[in-house]
Design a protein around this nucleic acid. Sequence first.
RNA 1: GCCCGGGUGGCGUAAUCGGUAGGCGCGGGGGGCUUAAACCCCCCUGGUCCGCAAGGGCCGUGUGGGUUCGAGUCCCACCCCGGGCACCA
Length: 910
Amino acid sequence: MADAPAYRYTAALAGRIELEWQKRWAEEGTQHTPNPEGDLADGFQRVAARPKLYVLDMFPYPSGSGLHVGHPLGYIGTDVFSRFKTMTGHNVLHPMGFDAFGLPAEQYAVQTGQHPRVTTEDNIANMRRQMERLGLGFDWRRCIATTDVDYYRWTQWIFLQLYNAWVDPATNRARPVSEAPDGDVERLVYQDDALVNWCPALGTVLANEEVTSEGRSERGNYPVHRVPLRQWKMRITAYADRLLEDLDRLDWPEPIKAMQRNWIGRSTGARVFFPTDGAAVEVYTTRPDTLYGATFMVVAPEYGGLDDLVAPEWPAGTPARWTGGGTTPAEAVAGYQAEVSGIRDVDRLSAARDKTGVFTGSFATNPVNDEKIPIFVADYVLAGYGTGAIMAVPAHDQRDFEFAREFDLPVVGVVETPEDWQWDEAYEGPGRAVNSPLIDGLPTDEAKARITAWLEAEGRGQGAVAYKLRDWLFSRQRYWGEPIPVVYDDAGNVHAVPEDQLPVELPELDNYEPEVSDDPDDMTVPQPPLARARDWVEVTLDLGDGPRRYRRETNTMPQWAGSCWYYLRYLDPHNDRALVDPAIESYWMGDEADKQPGGVDLYVGGVEHAVLHLLYARFWHKVLYDLGHVTTPEPFQRLFNQGYVLANVFRDERGQPVPALDVVEEDGAFFYEGKPVTREQGKMGKSLKNSVTPDEMYEAYGADTLRLYEMFSGPLDTSRPWDTEAVVGVYRFLQRVWRLVVDEDSGALRVTDAPLDDESRRELHRTIEAVRDGMESLRFNVSIARLMELTTALARANQPSREGVEPLVLMLAPLAPHISEELWGRLGGTESVTRQDFPAADPEWTRQDRITIPVQVKGKLRGTVDVDAGATQADLESAARAEPKVAGYLSEGSWRAIVVPGRLVNFVPA
RNA sequence: GCCCGGGUGGCGUAAUCGGUAGGCGCGGGGGGCUUAAACCCCCCUGGUCCGCAAGGGCCGUGUGGGUUCGAGUCCCACCCCGGGCACCA
């Protein structure tokens, strides 16, 4: 190393260049993006005529372990794209912030007593340092953290906007409740006593979305129980249709759209009333055409009207199998309810187990044929979907079929089945209706329509839609979250804290203990940590009728709250009169063509947020849109999912990960401390002991090399394994570029002003075309490959031509900004490369005059011919026939030529 | 079970309209520089067969079929890998 030439591009030199330019960028505000007005408007004149472009990353949680090389993949991609777009004449906004509320800092506070704010701010400072060291060109003036009081003040303000709004059925849009014709409307935020997912080990309630299909917490994998609790909810279901329909207008990956559609889960069918001895039971079905096949009815264990359905005693002849061992229906139902709640809930959420249930002792009347059918309680029917009650058609629904088998109930086919149907399962496909007097012979779709019309005419039902989407559980029993800005009076009535009394700040606590239970099955729900702050909870406020005593809400908001609107705050981060100035909002979010929903032009992040974050943010945005606070119906016009950086995970014989760095390979096998270990691919992370930090990479190669490596290892949307060994490839490339400009021994400038020859110039312009294409489509790996080829070509000259080197340096600038700044300066540039125009291909030189055309015989390549680009079919054929290698194959028989001008010639037997 | 992605050299990838498969990088091999090593530079590198060589033949994009003058690319069936949802009536 010591003997390296004095001016070679080494890690040490790269480090010096990078730190120097990072300092200059910060001093000169190179990365600042001006607003059209307000406190960040300085410099707007220069870019006023440019189109705007809003490029956004999903902001990170400020983790204590900082970044590993996998984290910044997307940030580097958006940075390259942003720098490219700036050089092609856009006013580009590319901000960064921190999603800083969350459990880890709170748990650390519990263990150490250190205030979560201190932990959080330390972590933010560290991650920001790492990002700056990478040369990521964020406008840090706009940096926000969701934990900033000035930020969560507006999160609380938005909460109040929703609390004080309802969806007007006349327009299907949110309006302030103050405009409601009468006070009795469904607010978009409300309290509900419904069953919640209580997790004793975490000491909190979780959203459905945070519970796995095994009935455990997504974080920590602890048991979750369903218990009734008074909780805040947001009425996202009021927006289900719009959230579904507007997906069609978004430029998002289809799989993400599909996941959101599936999550919303809209289905159409009918509600049908089944008379009983008491009140009629209403069921929801997507197959009203199978009504004649309904041979029993099932309600959920939590069904609201269940008590009225329980008969005083078992009807004569009730099979023992139906009673669940209860001497009366009431005893049987109560026993069953107890069985399926509590600890059994864990199992209940898992599919594919035997059907269970008990008979209620009562019957309903099938409205189409007046048959008496028994009513059961069973947990395969969910209280939260449809009406919580179903008509069971065992012949045409597999779940009902299994239940009927279990309880020996009749299976009556009412849809024509395929000829050889064996009835060892339900037939769920379409077919003509049979055994159904009102609709016999009709195909399924027509039968549905006909029977629904009949039900409506008879007043026995109506067409209906149902959604899988549930309202959003919005309370958390945690400290480190946004306080919910409501108070309660002595009578327990809810009062919103007036806007002018925001923010409701988090109180200081001595003890952050969330009262976690040692018993993961403990069902007693404790008071949230905020309840400990007595002086804060008990408060005197003047809510318009003089000072009175109130009790504050002690639940906090979920972590999703802050991330629902951060993209709006970046636009106008210091505004203390509004969450964002309307003129600034419409400048950055508006769509000038007015053909698209508008919003963020490019939003890059991982697929893990396909549903939750992206659905919640769309929901809030639509409410803000309805209420006139934003100008677009959607927040994110284009979404792009970056891939992950994967890494080898090595495990010892117990399956424990061992430090990947210390594993050695011998003849294709892997060993750690002499013992064999297994290898697999996984995410990079501390727990898998395979993290590589950016800091190690700057040390060994510099930030530009790291950036370039990450962009070169594959297209941005593809996951790729990390391979430290392969990093040296792009490092060598940067050394070659450096050497084009700088003499390694003397440091002198090597370029000559002599022009390129025509062939080199053609190559240059074709490269420019390809590089631009790769940049536009976020396939930087292709751009880099072409730049490598150009570099090799330019290096062939004794003295590289400035005509080729300057565009090369400019094209490299978005990817490797530091070395490009340095080289640009050495080439005589006086202004930052970021202010230069990206090279444009001259059509004069991308046009090909002579082209090489492949010649095939019977589809196999046998030679090539060089011809004028405009050669006619006849010219091409005769040139091809004249090619000696080809002629050999054509010497016998007669051949017909298939000629595609500009493409190829193929000879086939005539 | 249902719904999405994806299978190209030893490895990461390229070939974006159906038209020369293997460009770029890693790894590997050979050579140069060096007292030596590292760094750096140059050349070769899909498999296989024929040939002293120059050169050439055949095979080859997960498997099997199909469409086409021509298929990594389009169609059908299947296999494997990854992800999402999962009693939603």
